[in-house]
Amino acid sequence: MSHDIQSLAGVNRLVHEPARLMIIAILSAVESADFLYLQRETGLSRGNLSAHLSKLEEAGYLRIVKTYRGKIPLTVCQLTETGRNAFEDYRRQIKRFVENTFEMGE
């Protein structure tokens, strides 16, 4: 069991942060989503969302494409394959930890 608890220390902190986890979870369900959709769904401010998106982009988890819809700028975000794998690894790790914790409590 101690090994399972210790494994939690090795969890991907870039994904584990709640705001970024929301962003990644949303993007994992789709091909791409724009800034407005992510802002409305996460409830983050523009600046805060921009900062989190930049961190994910720097890590190679996210691809950001800036384009236009008519005259309005449009920022479209897409999870990369690395990002999808990181999210799946994270889910597996957390699931394993939660399952083992419940087993111990029973």
Partner: peptide, 16 residues
Amino acid sequence: KARLTFPRTGFVAYRP
């Protein structure tokens, strides 16, 4: 959707 929904609540493209 391009006229009504995406400007209001954002654009989402689904995986094929």
